[in-house]
Amino acid sequence: MIQQTNYQQLVKSLDYLKLKQMVAHLDEVVDFSINNQMSFIDTLIKLTSYEIDLREQNMIQAMVKVGAFPNLKEIKDFEFEFQPSINPQQIHDFITLRFIEHSENIVFLGPSGVGKTHLASSIGIAAAKKRTSTYFIKCHDLIQNLKRARLENRLESRLKHYTKYKLLIIDEIGYLPIDQEDAKIFFQLIDMRYEKRSTIFTTNVNFKSWDEVFQEPKLANAILDRILHHATVVTIVGNSYRLKNHLTSEDE
């Protein structure tokens, strides 16, 4: 009767501490401990591991959610055989996040539909799963957010917000032109992250034409200088994934 009371008190205490996984696995661990003559410390380690594993899993899910990725496609979902211009070993090296440790950038350059966003997102998801603060945003949306912040006199705090992420993914640079005033804001962000944080860029515009995107050659050069100084450029030459099925049916 005393043993049962102690057991009930333990369950009550674990419930009070909101250690639900420990409650759920308590009987299982106690039985395993008795049958295998485990020490008190080993039993506690085994019991608490259930709680830790769940919290780690929840934390990873939260980090991925905060990342605001357009989809949850990972590197295992990428069809490298369809894009032979891409070196799979290089992409898998990016997944190790070595480039983040050295505050380096990655630029995916290529026409629309070749997998730039998929690759950038995959690296970002891998970073988020390793609890590295990551955020994905399209260039146009980023510019609009910074522009709005400037009009509301909170540009500095918004720039700091985007600078805090260890990995920022800026998608689709060059799809829409950026006027000179907005380009200055964009430069401020790039400059604040320069040699301090890693950024992944995707673009369909050759670097020589960036002065047309930012509509100011000197500003474009200053932006490119900071982006490319510590960067790996992955140039993708191939067909569009979006046209893949159409091309296949035509070949048949």
Rank of each mutant, 00 (worst) to 15 (best):
K46V: 11
G110H: 02
L189N: 08
K218F: 13
T202E: 00
I169S: 01
S13F: 05
L159C: 15
L142N: 05
I178R: 00
E101R: 14
I60A: 06
K138I: 10
E152I: 06
I91V: 13
I106Q: 01
F82W: 06
A126T: 11
H102E: 06
F186H: 02
E101W: 07
D31P: 15
A62F: 04
S103C: 12
F214G: 03
A24M: 08
T202H: 05
C139F: 00
E101D: 12
L243Q: 13
N35K: 14
N71K: 14
F99E: 01
P111W: 00
Q61W: 00
K184E: 10
E28F: 15
D93L: 08
T248D: 10
G238S: 02
I170C: 05
Y7N: 10
V64R: 15
H102W: 07
E250S: 06
E156Y: 14
I41E: 04
F207P: 12
K160F: 09
I169T: 00
F78R: 06
L44N: 10
T202S: 04
M1N: 13
Q215V: 03
V66K: 14
S39K: 12
L119M: 12
S13A: 08
N36P: 12
A183E: 05
W210D: 01
T202A: 01
D53W: 13
N35A: 11
F136R: 02
A128F: 03
Y135T: 05
N239G: 10
E51W: 12
T117F: 00
Q83S: 07
E81T: 12
T5I: 13
Y175V: 00
D251C: 10
I106E: 00
R197L: 01
D251R: 13
Q21Y: 14
F99R: 04
Q9A: 12
V66Y: 07
